[in-house]
Design a protein around this nucleic acid. Structure first.
Length: 196
DNA sequence: ACGTCGATGACCT
DNA sequence: GGTCATCGACGTA
């Protein structure tokens, strides 16, 4: 199948992880399924810095079935289940440098009826303002693990350049010592879809 | 085979 | 502010 939008080139993903986390803001995240196409502009990300980052699943180069995809080339999909929710990351770094960027929020763009249905009629504000919410809205599952973000059916396409980017500590990692203080969360300043 | 533990979200007061 | 549902992965045995 051909993607409805032209995905980013694989070269885009070959940049330092912090830069990638910032560059992804404003890009369009797209998922095409049998139900239709749904998409949204990425407005919030977090960088996870691999072996030296206590908050990262790959801390200490921990290599398991789950983290395996992070040890490969950047630009692949790392999904995993948190409680009942699927979370999605962009694999970053380079071969054997297991970095990743968590996508925490998107601004809905296409497939709004489908998104509303998947989000069970909740108010628009609650559709995609969190990492577990946006995967439900776009129909992203752990079946997407290992895919390339440059190919149908789950891909990232060019969007807009944010006017301003804010940064601060990452969310939900209180138990990770000093790592909790690193300002590795980024968001589009003032966007109403940011998780908090 | 089993116990533990979250990069969460929904609902409650 | 707080509680808890419910899942897979992981460590341990």
């Amino acid at each position: 199948m051909e993607p409805r939008h032209q995905p980013l080139s694989i070269d885009f993903f070959y940049q330092p992880t912090i830069e990638l986390a910032r560059s992804l803001l404003g890009c369009l995240l797209v998922k095409e399924t049998a139900e239709g196409l749904a998409s949204g502009y990425i407005v919030e990300t977090e960088a996870y810095m691999g072996a030296g980052d206590r908050a990262a699943h790959s801390f200490g180069n921990r290599r398991t079935k789950r983290t395996e995809v992070m040890f490969g080339e950047p630009g692949r999909v790392y999904t995993y289940v948190m409680h009942t929710h699927t979370l999605i990351n962009v694999v970053s770094g380079e071969k054997n440098i297991p970095h990743a960027v968590l996508i925490r929020a998107i601004d809905p763009h296409e497939g709004l009826n489908l998104i509303e249905k998947r989000r069970k009629g909740r108010k628009r504000r609650e559709w995609t303002n969190g990492p577990g919410k946006l995967t439900e809205a776009l129909g992203i599952t752990r079946e997407d693990y290992g895919r390339l973000f440059t190919e149908w059916p789950l891909y990232i396409a060019p969007g807009y350049i944010p006017e301003s980017i804010s940064s601060g500590p990452r969310i939900g990692i209180e138990n990770t010592g000093e790592a909790r203080f690193h300002p590795w969360r980024f968001w589009v300043t003032g966007n109403s879809c940011v998780s908090r």
